[in-house]
């Protein structure tokens, strides 16, 4: 993309992108922290999540302000307009991801006070891995306005959903088998639900990337029209 005649405008847009990248980085760290905590059955790694969430929220407000400022002052059109609009929407999703991680971190504290599980939960591990890679790839695609990567990330959400369903049925069986661990299982279901949501938010971000790249809104249309 060529530079604007107004260097100031370019600088403002660059700053906006940098802020989004920073916000994405913070959210990624939150997600990594809770994943680590869950895999090691340890609440300590997830401890900074709450503090990170505050930073994420502050960034969301700043980015919102910056976007409003650009719309009012620069009246962006075409790709600039789409960039600003996608950012406004993407940061909402990022902020939600941050909220979800905070929720998981709280669950983790409760979980770690309970006795550890006996059997491994491969579906949960799969979900965590998938969601982490989805978020990382979505953020990368956003920075590069990589339409193909974004499309590919969107397709990966189905696998997360399937893993979530499999995990839930496995946990329901386990609850029947060992009701004394009912609270643990219940909490894990809640965590899994959050991961599933995070996957959805990552998918949303990718949809904005496609809108940003193509000028076409592919939300709620399925991938057929996106292709």
């Amino acid at each position: 993309m060529r530079e604007h005649i107004s260097g100031q405008y370019d600088a403002e847009l660059d700053e906006l992108r940098a802020m989004v990248t920073e916000m994405g980085g913070l959210v990624e760290r939150q997600l990594q922290a809770v994943c680590l905590g869950l895999s090691t059955w340890d609440a300590d790694p997830a401890e900074p999540v709450a503090a990170l969430d505050k930073a994420v929220n502050r960034l969301e407000v700043s980015i919102d302000d910056a976007c409003t400022h650009i719309i009012a002052r620069r009246q962006p059109t075409a790709s600039d307009l789409r960039l600003v609009m996608s950012i406004v929407k993407a940061i909402t999703d990022l902020e939600r991801i941050g909220d979800e991680t905070t929720r998981i971190a709280k669950m983790l504290e409760t979980l770690c006070a309970l006795p550890a599980l006996r059997d491994p939960l491969p579906e949960l591990t799969e979900m965590m891995e998938r969601v982490q890679s989805m978020l990382a790839d979505a953020l990368n695609a956003f920075v590069r306005v990589d339409e193909e990567r974004a499309l590919e990330v969107i397709t990966r959400d189905r696998a997360v959903d399937r893993a979530y369903e499999a995990l839930v049925s496995r946990l329901l069986e386990a609850m029947e088998a060992s009701p004394e661990r009912l609270r643990s299982y219940h909490n894990i279901i809640w965590c899994a639900r959050s991961f599933e949501r995070i996957g959805d938010h990552a998918k949303n971000v990718c949809e904005y990337i496609i809108y940003l790249a193509r000028g076409k809104d592919v939300r709620h249309q399925g991938l057929g029209s996106a292709n």
Binding site: M1, R2, E3, H4, I5, S6, Y9, P76, T77, A78, S79, D80, L81, R82, R214, G215, K216
Partner: peptide, 15 residues
Amino acid sequence: TRPQARQTEDYITGR
């Protein structure tokens, strides 16, 4: 919102 030609895009976005 979505000009089709590169020149249009550059012009209306101030490039």
